[in-house]
């Protein structure tokens, strides 16, 4: 790419922190990927001794040394052992020893809230994962916040100027976290007809707020506190005790103890907005811990997401007590 083309380039916000975590040679390749593809980049896949790949606009591509992309692996740039070693040093700020918890979880968070998934050899200690070594695969996931993603859902979460206890059901990759994050921002900042309230986010997988060294890298609102990388059940209790939130937001409840903590916070008079993996209400009822939550009729609203009209479609909103649908048709 010529120098003058780079000058003309619009500012792509994710680029800086992602490029800084890559060695010079791969940085140069990524910078040369055609702008139309690069702007919508979702993942950069790095696997030792195999071609450099990217995932953009729902398709994956092989990347050549000159940044051109195609679907044939023959001309693709092959990742070397040196590359993976350098990437590990760069993403960990030369301090892989300081990321033991992250290695156990299989991912690190970069500045900007982007996540790097890692895979290698797991070292066990008495049957549980102690750490990971020989890390050979990286999945750099570019996270983008969509301000306004919650605009459609918000009116259904408020009744009589009060926030409703809400459960969001969605299959993976349907924009559940993006919507939760935008809900946090909106109810924390406030909007016409709604005064901002104190929000506590328990962010077990650092996805909602994308914290880097404890600092949210996403706009989660002015009245929001974040407990980063904290187990949900323990985190919800900590939040209630220490930060006096009006609303607790947490992602992907998946265990009975999470349910207990949520019921506990409801008793403490705190509103809860949370999400779970399920494709619809019927599907949710097949999961024991969700069934328990649904049967206790604690939620005022149950929202279901899908991709029937594109990612982030609000498929249906149910009234929480009697499970009556509130939407005539899906909206996006």
């Amino acid at each position: 790419m010529l120098a003058r083309d780079i000058k003309k380039e619009p500012n792509i916000s994710w680029q800086q922190p992602i490029l800084e975590s890559l060695p010079q040679n791969i940085q140069e390749i990524i910078k040369r990927i055609p702008l139309s593809v690069r702007r919508d980049l979702e993942e950069i896949r790095i696997r030792e001794n195999r071609p450099l790949m990217i995932y953009s606009q729902g398709k994956d591509y092989f990347v050549c040394k000159d940044g051109s992309i195609n679907s044939h692996m023959e001309q693709a740039y092959i990742i070397t052992k040196n590359d993976t070693r350098n990437i590990l040093q760069l993403i960990s700020d030369y301090s892989i020893y300081a990321f033991e918890e992250e290695l156990r979880n299989g991912y690190l968070t970069l500045q900007g809230g982007h996540r790097v998934g890692i895979a290698g050899k797991i070292v066990l200690d008495k049957g549980s994962i102690r750490t990971m070594k020989h890390i050979r695969s990286f999945n750099i996931r570019i996270s983008k916040e969509i301000i306004g993603a919650a605009d459609k859902i918000i009116p259904y979460l408020i009744s009589d100027k009060k926030l409703c206890h809400t459960l969001i059901l969605s299959p993976p990759q349907m924009g559940k976290t993006t919507i939760l994050r935008d809900i946090a921002r909106k109810i924390s900042d406030g909007f016409p007809g709604f005064t901002g309230v104190k929000v506590g986010i328990v962010d077990e997988r650092s996805e909602i707020a994308g914290c880097w060294q404890g600092l949210p890298q996403r706009n989660v609102g002015v009245r929001t506190d974040v407990l980063d990388s904290c187990p949900k059940a323990a985190g919800i209790m900590m939040m209630i005790r220490s930060m006096s939130p009006n609303v607790i937001i947490t992602d992907e409840i998946g265990r009975m103890e999470d349910v207990d903590a949520i019921l506990e916070s409801l008793n403490a008079g705190i509103k809860v907005i949370t999400s779970a993996h399920a494709s619809d209400l019927q599907d949710a009822k097949r999961r024991p811990f969700l069934l328990r939550l649904l049967n206790s009729h604690v939620f005022d609203r149950i929202a279901v997401l899908s991709n029937s009209r594109g990612i982030g479609t609000l498929e249906q909103v149910y009234e929480g007590k009697n499970h009556q649908p509130l939407l005539a048709h899906p909206i996006r």
Binding site: Q89, S92, Y94, S95, I96, Y97, E100, L103, T131
Partner: peptide, 10 residues
């Protein structure tokens, strides 16, 4: 060796 292993190793 610096920065190449876990805390114990370092």
């Amino acid at each position: 060796q610096l920065g190449n292993s876990d805390r114990e190793g370092q």
